[in-house]
């Protein structure tokens, strides 16, 4: 690390067990010493070497880093899509990984505890806006009408309720992304993982999306990680994690959020 950035990026100190327990009782995301190695032997790639992160409930943090630094790998580990190689992860109040999965039904974990928002909205093209959002509670076993009510409430909050009966192909890019955010939020997950959610949007809409994420975080006590390169939105984060070669560094952001 060069001296220039030394004062700016302070290496995250290991959290003491006491602090960890306190934070965990409040929910959020806590990662300690997470490692991920792809492959074995000569061809092995250490995508994550030493990742420490802590995002409290109601907090939105940025995750920034050059291409190939391990951002997607980190999101996939957090999202229980791939298995890390070592470390500890706590989501909400559950310790989900500690040198091995501590949870048997990862699919249910993803469905109930984690909201995903992708770079592209990836709405299901054959479901209308309401059902795209209502699908998650339905998958979790909610009756259709209750699931749709839950979806409508969010669509209203995200200002797309007037397109509730439209098909995804009839929406603008911004509307699609807001529907995708509604889908990520609908099960009130304690954690939302957003991978470049503003990449396809112009700066006004990108800021609107971040504003919505901040509102949602406060309203539902959600811990949100936003992976981004987007210069337009980086200044909005109160806290930013930088990742380089699989190692995270915490930085106090310049943003005041949207309070």
């Amino acid at each position: 690390m060069d001296s220039d950035s030394g004062d700016k990026w302070s290496r995250k100190a290991p959290i003491t067990d006491q602090r960890m327990d306190l934070k965990q009782s409040l929910g959020g995301i806590h990662i300690e010493g997470l490692k991920k190695r792809y492959g074995q032997g000569d061809t092995a790639v250490d995508a994550l070497k030493d990742v420490h992160m802590s995002v409290g409930p109601g907090e939105v943090v940025g995750l920034v880093g050059p291409s190939g630094s391990g951002k997607s790998t980190l999101l996939k580990c957090l999202g229980a899509i791939i298995e890390p190689s070592a470390g500890r992860m706590t989501l909400g109040r559950d310790l989900i990984y500690d040198g091995g999965w501590r949870i048997s039904d990862l699919r249910a974990l993803r469905r109930d505890k984690i909201g995903f928002v992708f770079q592209a909205p990836y709405l299901i093209p054959f479901l209308d806006v309401t059902d795209n959002v209502a699908l998650l509670p339905m998958l979790a076993g909610k009756p259709n009408s209750a699931a749709r009510e839950q979806a409508m409430a969010l669509l209203q909050a995200l200002d797309v309720a007037h397109r509730a009966k439209a098909m995804p192909s009839q929406l603008s890019g911004g509307e699609q992304q807001r529907v995708a955010i509604a889908r990520g939020l609908v099960n009130r997950p304690p954690v939302i993982l957003a991978d470049e959610p503003t990449a396809p949007l112009d700066s006004e809409r990108a800021l609107a999306v971040i504003r919505i994420l901040n509102q949602m975080a406060r309203q539902f006590d959600t811990a949100i990680i936003v992976v981004t390169h987007d210069e337009k939105i980086i200044p909005t984060f109160k806290r930013i994690y930088h990742i380089r070669d699989g190692v995270t560094y915490e930085e106090a952001g310049e943003g005041r959020g949207f309070d």
Partner: peptide, 16 residues
């Protein structure tokens, strides 16, 4: 395929 990956990601069971 993309939609199926999304369905799986958000927790749809293989059975479904």
């Amino acid at each position: 395929i993309r939609e199926i990956a999304v369905l799986k990601l958000i927790g749809t069971r293989n059975r479904t």
